[in-house]
Design a protein around this nucleic acid. Structure first.
Lengths: 162, 162
DNA sequence: ATCCGGCTTGCCATGGTGGGAAGGTCAAGC
DNA sequence: GCTTGACCTTCCCACCATGGCAAGCCGGAT
């Protein structure tokens, strides 16, 4: 467990904390800081199998290599583009596969674009309806209010009023 | 056992099922059908105190009056406009208050419009970035892919690039 | 009397994140 | 040495809104 083991420590046996530091490994807190993924979420991603289980020190601390940070940043970027965990799982898979086709990646991305567009349209419809109602609401001390009337009315406004 | 339990008193004494039918009361299933709110969610809304606890028959079946259906439709409409449960709680409160000012309602609505606009903008930014990356991805059998490169790169693409 | 469909409660799951408790570890200061 | 404070560990709970399933009553029609 000395030189030979140290060499193969990638996903390998536990090492000592100080040694890990010297070898350029990071605590989970440092990894969180460096990647923008909270320590909480790093553990979570590990627990659901999105990322490989981190190596540990003898004291059971997780340690992260530069490579691990790279993966975490990938995940972070994927999340900030709105991909779900499952989609990121697929993207990580493709990322690691040399035999991937860019068509596969593009398909995933465009599916997500479609999803985003659908959600955007839905929210725009809500916003437009509400903005319209708000425009017609005088917004003073009187209780009369088109907004409440719409909510209360229940007359065929489950859909757009034709 | 705080708010929900406190509100767990019914509005009237229990009556018999057939009598309830005759008096124009509805089962939860009928109420669900009539309002578009699932029976599950009606019970949930009751349990969290969003709506008053329904009256019951002797056999403990919930029964709903036309008035109750009106409230349920209000909630349904609010949800379909994207209001949160808490916001709907506030709207219901205002709806029931005669002394309300339309300004209060309008304020709530416009806050929600702002919220929607923020979320829309966020999703549009995601979509635009992704669409752009997808446009630059040839989408063929080769592994080279700007999308994966973006995700993997980690060079200052955490936010919009000004 | 039996059967089916509806009702009741209660628990679990989703997705992604945060909060916190209870306990172990490390490094620095005395 | 020993204390202290910052870190780490696991585990559980909460959010929001909804769906699903299961075990066990009830209603009305056959």
């Amino acid at each position: 467990m000395s030189a030979a083991a140290t060499r193969h420590r990638h996903r390998g046996p536990r090492i000592e904390a100080s040694e890990a530091r010297q070898s350029g490994y990071f605590n989970i807190g440092d990894a969180a800081q460096a990647t923008g993924v909270s320590a909480k979420m790093i553990r979570h991603y590990e627990s659901i199998g999105l990322i490989q289980a981190a190596d540990r020190t003898f004291a059971n601390y997780r340690i992260y290599s530069e490579n691990d940070l790279h993966t975490l940043r990938f995940v972070k970027r994927g999340r900030s583009l709105g991909f779900s965990i499952k989609q990121i799982e697929a993207l990580l898979e493709l990322w690691s596969k040399r035999g991937r086709s860019s068509a596969q990646v593009k398909k995933l991305a465009l599916q997500h674009v479609d999803d985003l567009n659908a959600r955007i349209a839905e929210m725009q419809a809500m916003r437009d309806t509400l903005q319209d109602l708000a425009n017609r609401c005088h917004g003073d001390e009187r209780p009369d209010c088109p907004i409440l009337e719409d909510l209360a009315c229940a007359k065929g406004h489950d859909q757009k009023h034709p």
